[in-house]
Amino acid sequence: MEIIIQQLINAVQLGAVYALIALGYSMVYGIIRLINFAHGDIFMVGAFIGFLLAVKFKLPFVFILLLTMFLTALLGIAIERIAYHKLRNAHRMSLVITALGVGTFLENLVRLAVGPQTRQIPAQLSNNILHLTNGIVVTEDKLLIIGISIMLMIVLWLFVNKTLIGKAMRAVADNIDVVPLMGINVDMIVSVTFAIGSALAAAGGIFFGQSYSIEPYMGIDLGWKAFIAAVVGGIGSIEGAVVGSFILAGIEVFTVAYLSSNLKNGIAFALLIILLVIWPYGIMGKPSLKKV
């Protein structure tokens, strides 16, 4: 029992990182129907910005987190403006290929700047061991990471559902052509969406870097997994991205704990395929119905 709970905590931590990435995939897809394959690399750049701020400037954790989120948000806006904006009405395939190109560009840019070797973000959070009931132990940083991630998701949910800009984002997802007729600048809404998605991925990058080493190609594997989590949850849906991420992380963590780490990806993806067979639009996704 203790082991199960212990593993559950690990799964929640990994799921939180997946979710922070998956949200950006889902939100961007929701508003402009683009699978932003550069998103995993934006997550990677976020981790490296955090690394530089920690190593070179030795800032306190809160500032590292906020500044990294801010700078990565700017990167997201710039990528959309430079690479995707002109293609808004182009064939979707052109956009996807551009996104893959942007991703490759970011990987190589970071590799050129800092080299291909793996790095460790110096531990920013105390890893004091807390003893919970029944011999369950958890480190403080783990709890903090889980807590901040969940808080970010709640803030996002409130933003999207309660603020006027959030409502405009959902309106763009519904019917992008009509939004300008309400006097709303669609470009601004798209920029906000890229900014939020990139900032969340950056937070994921820093949290990931607290437990694992980072390198310029780390965004490929994690990006794919977060993308798949978003699809399984129902791409375009915020709640779906979170649900899919925790399911994926849960399957992975428990496969490693009880079966074999070699089977991790195999079993995880087999189960995800089964989930998609049951829910072809994802767990929280809806088939796109357009009323005429």
Partner: peptide, 9 residues
């Protein structure tokens, strides 16, 4: 034309 309301809002 076609009203253009936002159905999921």
């Amino acid at each position: 034309e076609g009203r253009g309301i936002f159905p999921s809002l």
